[in-house]
Measured scan of single mutants.
Amino acid sequence: SFNTVDEWLEAIKMGQYKESFANAGFTSFDVVSQMMMEDILRVGVTLAGHQKKILNSIQVMRAQMN
């Protein structure tokens, strides 16, 4: 498990989005775990492969939080 959203993004090789997530207010796992595709688009993730990777990881995160 990760301590910060930045660490999580690095771990899934999506570190290039750290600033975008932070600027959009997605700075805690409570918020990130609620993200939908529209949120991912809003933070500027436009590549389908990256969207899928982030969404898949969020689903895993949700499962671990319950």
Rank of each mutant, 00 (worst) to 15 (best):
Ile54Trp: 01
Lys53Ile: 15
Ser57Trp: 10
Asp39Pro: 02
Gly49His: 15
Asp39His: 05
Lys13Phe: 11
Leu47Met: 12
Phe26Cys: 06
Leu9Glu: 02
Gly15Gln: 08
Gln34Val: 09
Ala24Pro: 02
Gln59Asp: 10
Glu7Lys: 07
Met65Tyr: 06
Leu47Gln: 13
Ala24Leu: 10
Gln59Tyr: 12
Met14Ser: 02
Lys52His: 12
Ile12Trp: 03
Lys52Cys: 10
Val60Ser: 12
Ala22Gln: 15
Ile54His: 02
Val60Pro: 04
Ser20Leu: 12
Leu47Trp: 08
Asn56Ser: 14
Ile54Phe: 05
Gly15Arg: 05
Phe2His: 08
Phe29Arg: 04
Ile58Glu: 00
Gly25Gln: 05
Val60Leu: 14
Leu9His: 01
Ala48Ser: 10
Leu41Gly: 05
Met65Asp: 07
Met65Ser: 07
Val31Arg: 14
Asp6Met: 07
Glu38Cys: 08
Arg62Leu: 14
Gln59Glu: 15
Glu7Leu: 06
Met36Tyr: 09
Ala22Glu: 09
Leu55Ala: 06
Ile54Cys: 02
Ser28Cys: 06
Val45Gln: 01
Ile12Gly: 03
Glu38Phe: 06
Ser33Leu: 15
Met61Glu: 03
Ile40Tyr: 03
Asn56Arg: 13
Asp39Lys: 02
Val43His: 01
Leu47Val: 13
Phe26Tyr: 15
His50Val: 02
Phe29Lys: 04
Trp8Glu: 00
Arg62Glu: 06
Val60Lys: 09
Lys52Pro: 01
Tyr17Pro: 01
Met37Ile: 11
Asn56Asp: 15
Met35Asn: 00
Ser20Pro: 08
Phe21Pro: 01
Arg62Asp: 05
Ala48Gly: 08
Asn66Glu: 15
Met37Gln: 10
Ile54Ser: 00
Glu10Ser: 07
Met61Asn: 04
Thr4Gln: 07
Arg62Gly: 06
Ile12Val: 04
Gly25Asn: 06
Thr27Cys: 07
Asp6Trp: 10
Leu55Ile: 09
Gln16Arg: 10
Ala22Tyr: 13
Phe29Leu: 15
Leu9Met: 04
Ser20Arg: 13
Asn56Ala: 14
Lys18Glu: 03
Met61Val: 05
Ile58Arg: 00
Ile58Ser: 02
Gln34Glu: 12
Gln59Val: 09
Val45Tyr: 01
Leu9Trp: 03
